[in-house]
Nucleic acid binder design. Structure first.
Length: 487
RNA sequence: GGCCCCAUCGUCUAGAGGCCGAGGACACCACCCUCUCAAGGUGGAGACACGGGUUCGAAUCCCGUUGGGGCUGCCA
């Protein structure tokens, strides 16, 4: 079958052995709780969600925890938390495959009874030994006709056809064909009687009426096995597949929990906004029409089409994410920004009781347009709440020790600041005047004051900062800076 | 090794045979604005992997090559 064209997809019932297009869309997000929830999983969840919402369909959340040894409850909690954080809800579930064992056992029994599966007691070593010199590796079918019955140390294998081929109908990839002779007799039940995920997935997708399977590209080779099982179990029309491209690191390798920074939780803790993450994730393999990249959830839902998803791997670029985050932070209302900063302010370097909400409130809008993550907020305002500013030695050396007329400016500013009006405008004017006396523009003249008072040479606008800090604290810091200069 | 997938600026992408001497975004560079830093504005550099076909015409279709990736578990 030829790849589906968009027009056919939109208007004509899907033909052949695929689910009828008239059936309401029903997708599932089926993560495995074997570790931290990462950006790749989040992107898959997003695409499922967008597709379901676009078509007014439903999404099932299914936890694929058939491997008891690798699954932990904490990871499931992490998945659910992360989805909620991203604002992705589901209509059904979460189901746990670990609680549905009887369904898989039933299916396995049927396959065995029908002669479609057989028990095998080959060890990995024995099988490797036999197949070492065979060009096409995989299980060699040694136990196919040994007539083994269930028992200790015996796994159940599905007997794959020797002839023919299976075509996977994939909205993103067209119609890859897999020759059956290249598909080994794969295990569907472990010797401890628990199912392998391929069996569980097929049984569940069937039982849950899944119409579209949207998952990572790494599952494409498994799909032929799933389709074979689907047929053997008499499942009728299989779902339509969409294998989304993998997310890769700088080296072009699939994102790995071990070597790459992929934990959603980590981004959250650094002060990334869920809206920014969601928007950025949507752009990995998909692009909204019209060339606009910063788009609302509603716009994404309206525009999302599975067949527009790219087929090539996408690099997860943290720098672009950072840019999106900054945009989303700036788009917050002042109140929202203050609220969102809350938890990050709790981890400031100041003493717990020294935080002044009113002071932060005044400076917040100026900080808002200067940070790229909420995690950067505390460092921008800590000078307000610390008894003494934390001095950045590099800035001190460059702008005070070696800065032009620094000592004179600090001295004069301290004097002028004693009596001038304590408003940003007045401080601005006074500082400019002091600079002029030394043939310095305000850009240069403000540096010694900025470093003396805030400890750094970058930060929110200086005069607003001084106004909030107050006259005496400011003058005291200027005095200490002069002292420090002498020392 | 085998099977499968993929291939447009450094990165994410637009691109459905003529609208493409390839557009946007991030990053980068320069200038402007500016109390620092950001933001914003203007400009710049930067890509159709290669080779064959098909066609009046190919980034777009076909084949091959090369390169990259995924899978190849009694993991998912």
């Amino acid at each position: 079958m030829a790849p589906m064209t968009p027009s056919r997809w939109e208007t004509v019932p899907v033909e052949g052995d695929s689910a009828p297009a008239s059936a309401p869309v029903r997708v599932r997000f089926a993560p495995s709780p074997t570790g931290i929830f990462h950006v790749g999983g989040a992107r898959t969840a997003l695409f499922n969600w967008l597709f379901a919402r676009h078509h007014g369909g439903s999404m099932v959340l299914r936890i694929e925890d058939t491997d008891a040894e690798r699954n932990q409850e904490q990871w499931t909690v992490g998945i659910v938390d992360a989805l909620r954080w991203l604002g992705l809800d589901w209509d059904d579930g979460p189901y746990h495959q670990s609680e549905r064992s009887h369904l898989y056992a039933e299916a396995a029994e049927k396959l065995f009874a029908d002669g479609r599966a057989y028990y095998c007691d080959c060890s990995r070593e024995a099988r490797d030994e036999r197949t070492r010199h065979i060009p096409t590796p995989g299980y060699d079918g040694y136990c196919r006709d040994r007539g083994l019955t269930p028992g200790e140390g015996r796994a159940l294998r599905f007997r794959t056809p020797d002839e023919g081929s299976t075509t996977v109908i994939d909205v993103i990839r067209g119609a890859p064909v897999f020759e059956h002779h290249t598909v080994e007799d794969f295990v569907i039940l472990r010797s401890n009687e628990t199912p392998i995920f391929i069996l569980a997935v097929v049984v569940d997708d069937m039982a849950m009426g899944i119409t579209h399977v949207i998952r990572g590209e790494e599952h494409l080779p498994n799909t032929v096995k799933a389709l074979l099982l689907w047929g053997a179990l008499g499942g009728g029309d299989p779902p339509v597949f969409a294998h989304v491209p993998v997310l890769v690191n700088q080296a072009g390798k699939k994102l790995s929990k071990r070597r790459d920074k992929v934990a959603l939780e980590q981004y959250r803790e650094q002060g990334y906004l869920p809206e920014a993450m969601r928007n950025y994730l949507a752009l990995l393999g998909w692009a909204p029409p019209g060339g606009r990249e910063v788009v609302s959830l509603d716009e994404m839902v309206a525009a999302f089409r599975l067949e527009d998803v790219n087929s090539s791997p996408a690099f997860f670029d943290e720098r672009k994410l950072l840019h999106f985050n900054a945009e989303y932070i700036r788009a917050l209302s002042a109140t929202e920004f203050v609220g969102a900063s809350g938890t990050f302010l709790e981890h400031g370097s100041w003493a717990p009781g020294d935080f002044d909400f009113a002071a932060f409130d005044v400076l917040a809008p100026l900080v808002q347009e200067r940070v790229r993550t909420l995690g950067e907020v505390p460092a921008m305002v800590e000078f307000l709440f610390l008894p003494e500013p934390r001095i950045d030695e590099k800035a001190w050396d460059k702008r005070v020790v070696r800065g032009p007329a620094a000592k004179q400016i600090l001295t004069a500013a301290r004097e002028e600041f004693a009596s001038c009006a304590w408003t940003a405008a007045a401080l601005h004017q006074v500082t400019a005047a002091v600079g002029e006396r030394h043939q310095l523009g305000l850009a240069k003249a403000q540096f010694p004051v900025r470093v003396a008072v805030t400890g750094r040479d970058v930060g929110p606008p200086l005069f607003e900062s001084l106004e909030v800090l107050g006259r005496e604290p400011t003058r005291e810091r200027l005095r200490r800076a002069l002292e420090r200069l002498e020392a």
